[in-house]
Write a protein that binds this DNA or RNA. Sequence first.
DNA 1: GAAGCTCGGTACGCTAGCGTACCGACGGGA
DNA 2: TCCCGTCGGTACGCTAGCGTACCGAGCTTC
Lengths: 248, 248
Amino acid sequence: MPRTRARSTIKSPLHPKQNANQILAALPPKDYARLRSDLATVPMKLKQILWEPNRPIEAVYFPIDAVASILALTDGHTVEVGTIGNEGLVGLPVFLGATTSPGRAMVQVAGHGERLDIAVFRREAHREGRLRQLMERYTQAFMSQVSQTTACNRAHSVEQRLARWLLIVRDRVNRNEFPLTHEFLGQMLGVRRATVTEAAAALQRLKLISYHRGVITIRNGRGLERAACECYGIVLQEFERLLGTPSG
Amino acid sequence: MPRTRARSTIKSPLHPKQNANQILAALPPKDYARLRSDLATVPMKLKQILWEPNRPIEAVYFPIDAVASILALTDGHTVEVGTIGNEGLVGLPVFLGATTSPGRAMVQVAGHGERLDIAVFRREAHREGRLRQLMERYTQAFMSQVSQTTACNRAHSVEQRLARWLLIVRDRVNRNEFPLTHEFLGQMLGVRRATVTEAAAALQRLKLISYHRGVITIRNGRGLERAACECYGIVLQEFERLLGTPSG
DNA sequence: GAAGCTCGGTACGCTAGCGTACCGACGGGA
DNA sequence: TCCCGTCGGTACGCTAGCGTACCGAGCTTC
């Protein structure tokens, strides 16, 4: 755990390839070559919906510097269950043989990603090879993330969860500053905007973060990790173990 | 949804094969034959640990009439993230290429299951065929269950969640009566025992359930479905869609 | 039939987060 | 330069669930 903490505090080249999706970057040249012509680098815009509940999923996305969320819906509430950045892909249901999912996928930090048609993805991911192995491991890592979030939602305070969440995003965008309104954070954490404001103000008072009109800056990553619940470390470790990539 | 509800109210042969694990039952004879000699029908005892966090997983279990839980741990709290009965198997991490998991797997309703060594399971599940397809779909269904639970934990009252949980167990054991103490339910729902007592008393007052010294009986399944949150129906539908099996 | 343990009913004071609402300040667009 | 929409600070009363604790009733064991 101490090692993990130290490691996850942002240093120069945190990720092996700064501006690439980790799954694509880990493919042998031959495998990548087969995909290349079908990959399209596309902008992923803030609040863009990548799929709606129970509607056909048309493409999968390998984020480069964008971050997306998988949301579960309930009458009234919308709650984030998992966060996806350049360590993974948006489209696990497709890998698992489904064409729809009861959740929603939405872009939460704008950026770019590689878009791939589901037909090509299916073909390649089902071939015995590196892509499939990576996808299996990523599925397991993602499952761990969702599981831990479930427990976290029951056990930890909003302040702790907010801290954790900011760290997760930071790890994925590889920056200490990113746009996020309290309103938006409230939806992610499943709490009302005013509660986020209170928690964020507390973290700001501790000089761990600062923010202004929709832009949040992490001022003290190490301190923020201390303010977060241990769920951050648990999931981070699991990602490192399975994929050799830090992604809380 | 109405169809789903009607269907899920317990009737004579609810499941295709009453006393079999659904995944094994769905295998073509040839595929099953390859496994047969390695499967061992074993008792799954109350509170038996099937794997501990970050310890090697040695076998996977296909429950027949037992129910197991996947638990996520937090300092202090233990919260259930998913429930597994005869519709699935305990051992997804193995299917996904891992040998350990940060969670814990525990038997929560005693019964029997088919135990299979991970080596054999890996070999067979990686072969292109029906088992692999079933496993992929089950993985997706389980993921949906965990996701919905995450949202449910944030959005719904203990009384609603308790109702949902009892229905899930009922669907899996195929009975209306099963042993479960309030203490135990508290751990599953991530609340204290006294809170369960209050919620259970409320459901009893409504004549939806009754209980006595660790044995719970569902008296009015339809009514209990109405008392539960819609998460029950959502997950049930997803299981039916993916696996053609009702398993809330 | 007495002892002891398990299970569940209940109570008390406490607090985190809720719903709602109002308001000021910043900043982009005309 | 002004306007208006967005963003965030704050307040008030409310409640679900918490931690803790005590107690009685039913089994089981001897």
